[in-house]
Design a protein around this nucleic acid. Structure first.
Lengths: 220, 220
DNA sequence: CACCTATGAATGAAGG
DNA sequence: CCTTCATTCATAGGTG
């Protein structure tokens, strides 16, 4: 694999792990912890001010920039969402196939731990592997900025399309935004974008994958 | 994130079961074959639907999940490109050294379909292929496949995906809103005051985390 | 048994 | 926000 052209720009300055001051930022454990904590507080898309503050605090643990924080939240949110989607889908999909038990569980919202990672998936199963976790903390929402908007995305039950003969990927999107949860009523604001409202049924068969053990609630 | 709270993925395989509840999916020959076949069909980044479909078929050969398929394609594509890149480079390098009197062949395209960058005006002027090379003759099956990123920058190529997905996002606060709250500048059209998209430079003390040129008082 | 390679998985960074 | 690319980590599997 090492084609040889390995431009390891590592600058093993300090002992131990080479300083990652090479290319992309690699968060330290502490940084991750803090970020995840903030995320749990309800922060999803921090404002510039918040980003500055967070960055400032994170700098104590290592080099970091504002954009790192920004990206982190973006990615984290997106991925949490993906996982959640997949869970929901897989969960429903199973019932559509099995139908053995017509008593669907409360929901696959297994309050998992914050973030999973390597060596995960002990129980080979997307929806399985209920690893031990502590549901001690949840959305605290105690920060100055919190959006207590519990959005329960209703699954539109994708229309199993039997015409799947050989459809070439029409360059479509993988993730469809079936969401229509617009809480921001925007007080007296003409939220007129382009006038292009959905032509009708906007339920796209969003069939996402991704698994893992995570079921963090999202409140946007 | 080395979350630390890593539950041992132990598996009661006291009898050394062949089923290694492995931490990671190990594709079988059949699965690989099928995947590679699909890849050859032109599928690079399957949609969610396709992934589900593929996964379903692959399940016949062994346990597999959607994310496995997803990752497989991602990795395969990336690595093929990587290989292609270095091959092309080496190939080109060879000619640079030899400077033979003949025209270099179209390209060392093994069995892979490598979209010849039709960027035109490549400058090289050696794009003439004397023999009819089977380029992307995979029928109109595929579509979005492309992106022959060489070393410069991602070639824009044709605009794939007509952005049929329209979403009126009205939630969350973007960056920049340093004043009061979310201005909800109807970011549907992108390019708003996020401060990240581009320094529009207006009246707000937005912080540009990206340019590295932060007017931040926080000097390191 | 140590080392190397191939590859699954994860995630930071961008683009649009 | 959604999609995709690039980079990196971790591990299964082959080889001397």
């Amino acid at each position: 694999m090492e084609g040889g052209s390995e431009s390891a720009v590592v600058d093993v300055s300090t002992s131990g792990r080479a300083t990652p001051a090479s290319s992309r930022w690699n968060p330290t454990k502490e940084q991750i912890t803090l970020l995840e904590n903030l995320y749990k507080q309800g922060i999803r898309t921090p404002t510039a001010e918040q980003i500055q503050q967070i960055t400032g605090r994170l700098k104590s643990f290592g080099h970091i920039e504002g954009k790192n924080v920004f990206y982190w939240f973006q990615n984290h949110k997106a991925r949490q969402r993906q996982k959640q989607k997949q869970e929901s889908l897989a969960y429903f999909n199973r019932y559509l196939h099995k139908a053995s038990n017509v008593f669907p569980p409360p929901c696959p919202n297994d309050g998992e731990k914050i973030n999973s990672l390597k060596t995960s998936g002990g129980g080979v199963g997307i929806e399985s592997a209920p690893l031990s976790y502590n549901t001690t903390d949840h959305d605290g929402l105690i920060t100055g900025d919190n959006n207590s908007n519990s959005k329960q995305e209703t699954l539109p039950l994708f229309p199993l399309e039997p015409t799947g003969i050989l459809q070439a990927r029409t360059t479509s999107s993988s993730l469809a935004s079936t969401s229509a949860e617009n809480s921001t009523a925007t007080p007296s604001s003409s939220s007129d974008t382009t006038g292009i409202e959905e032509g009708g049924f906007g339920d796209q068969p969003f069939i996402d994958f991704f698994s893992g053990n995570n079921g963090n609630y999202e409140s946007d």
